[in-house]
Design a protein around this nucleic acid. Structure first.
Lengths: 339, 339
DNA sequence: AGTGTCGATGACAGCGCTGTCATAACGAGG
DNA sequence: CCTCGTTATGACAGCGCTGTCATCGACACT
């Protein structure tokens, strides 16, 4: 840390560009932001100076001055889960054209961590915030409600949002799965799932499934849930355990595709042929599910679309509208070859 | 959460906290940032006022005033690829303790897009930048070199970095794979891969593999490469095409685990037993590879560690050191059950 | 010619915070 | 009793940019 670091490393400022092109700073600012009326000749002169100096605007200063940053906070439970990675991709895609920058925070499925993440993202004065799910601490909800920023709660539309909700009805999906499978003649249902505390939506699907089964006079003949996140390995082990317990289901509904693919692997290892010996049903419609020797029967959700629609809805207007908005991105039941 | 709605509407400012606690703004600033000497009584009084007003510092203003943001730009080709998602997780983990915020940009494997992303991230005056890979446009390289920010180029250590490199030697990994498989008695090698333009590291592994084979007097008996990104489906189709072409390899090396799992699926569908009928070898060591009925033979890379080490190295010092640093995170060859 | 309008540009005052120096209080040491 | 060094606090001037007026021709009307 010596005091002499000012030779070549100094980036160009608005003032430098202004001096070079012989106009005032504010005019350069207008040219750069494409705002306000500028004479063609002036614009060109300024742009040339910008190119010459390699000027890159300081968005920090810009955001502070206009008291409105182009940052969008994104709060996700995990980025290594492909589902949220897809959502993030959609957000990126929808935000890019308007020059907004997503800033991601990860909660690791922890409500208190979410509160901390939200607080720290809020410090960057984001224009909007996108969060996965609706289960927040009271403090989180207060911060989100108090601020005059736009808020999207995504994945799920089974709960009333603070501002905008984007996603699909997991309860309805669970019901549709039950109806579909009953329609195909299955009667002895089993369920293999993962941690409900971490993944509330899996629970909504379960409720829909079991509720509809009950309406048809049916009940699960077996059920297994791992304490922890979903994974292929967990699916494999849980199905093995379920089968070993003596339950004789004709169809197993998994909490998601990761688990179902694991179940498929168990079948392969145990010499069972999916559908013929036991039917398998997943959720999400991951790529891998379609690459299995027998295409997995599942529900395809459009994660990228969720991200896109959420981002687009928030960017559309800086003011929170009076009415809450609910955007249903739907889903498609893929009959597949395993059920 | 005591009396949260007191200063309803507009969020509290440093000045509000100062007024409420009867000290000057700068003192509040010092308390909040834990900087400089503060009398215990004063600290407590200020902290109480902070809690009461629900004050959240404006990091935009802070960064501007101290001309140094706590933002770290992260430039990745994709977030939906689990490999980069893992890296991002590591970055998050290493950055969180020091209060730094990652800001992610996605290039979609496009060099010009990378240039655009870098320029736009630079506008936020990040303290550091992490980029996947070493292949940048001249302009990108210039921006990165000129700025006085720290730069980490990750995944790969086969090329000289601008500042810090963190990753593993893919060329060496390719060689190790060849040696390992030759050692196990395989002689008729085939390769199934994906787009080299998008994934330069796959090419390095290929070069290492083929080079070492040549040293042993061997050459590929078959090779198939898809134009496009890797995927399970692509691996399945490419292996099918390779086998249909009449090549009779005893081992197939895939560009990564996604492709290899696809190859595994082809075997299942074609009635081939991996290793007995044809050996399969992947790269990355994904979770799913370990959940297959036969554990996939592969090279386990520690992606999360790459992210962590990169972030840690950059946060350690704000000044770019004279010497370039190269951090080897290594890899482990997993013998597995498919080769 | 007088007035109004519009297009193009500039002066100025902050946005909310922090670096830097100054100041005050108070023992300790000579 | 007078420095001197600490510790605790404050005043002030920006960081780099943009919102808000104000200004000034040029032109179209009446």
């Amino acid at each position: 840390m010596s005091g002499e670091g000012r030779e070549q490393g100094n980036r160009a400022l608005l003032a430098d560009v202004a001096r070079l092109s012989g106009v005032s700073e504010i005019t350069v600012s207008r040219v750069v932001r494409n705002k306000g009326p500028i004479a063609p000749a002036t614009r060109e002169r300024v742009l040339r100076a910008v190119a010459e100096t390699g000027y890159v605007p300081n968005r920090l200063a810009g955001a502070l001055a206009s008291s409105g940053s182009a940052l969008v906070g994104v709060v996700l439970p995990s980025v290594s889960n492909i589902v949220f990675a897809d959502v993030l991709r959609g957000i990126h895609a929808a935000l890019a054209p308007s020059g907004h920058q997503p800033v991601v925070g990860v909660t690791d499925y922890d409500r208190d961590e979410e509160e901390r993440v939200v607080r720290s993202l809020l410090a960057w004065q984001p224009a909007a915030m996108i969060l996965a799910g609706f289960e927040h601490t009271a403090a989180t909800r207060a911060m989100l409600t108090a601020g005059r920023l736009r808020v999207a709660e995504i994945m799920d539309i089974d709960t009333a949002p603070i501002d905008v909700a984007v996603g699909l009805s997991h309860r309805r999906a669970g019901r549709d799965i039950a109806r579909h499978l009953i329609g195909r003649g299955y009667r002895r249902f089993a369920y293999v799932g993962h941690d409900w505390d971490r993944d509330h939506r899996a629970r909504l699907r379960y409720d829909g499934l079991v509720g509809t089964l009950a309406e048809g006079g049916l009940a699960l003949v077996g059920e297994r849930r791992i304490e922890g996140p979903s994974s292929t390995l967990a699916g494999r082990e849980m199905l093995a355990a379920l089968m070993a317990s003596g339950a004789r289901p004709d169809v197993v509904v998994f909490s998601n595709d990761d688990m179902a693919v694991g179940g498929y692997f168990h079948c392969l290892a145990a010499g069972l042929t999916p559908r013929r010996d036991i039917a398998l049903f997943g959720f999400n419609g991951l790529d891998i599910a379609a690459a299995l020797p027998l295409r997995l029967s599942t529900v395809r959700t459009n994660r990228m679309l969720i991200g896109e629609r959420a981002a687009a809805a928030l960017v559309a207007s800086a003011e929170r509208p009076d009415a809450r908005e609910i955007i249903d991105t739907g889903y498609v039941l893929e009959a597949g070859e395993t059920a």
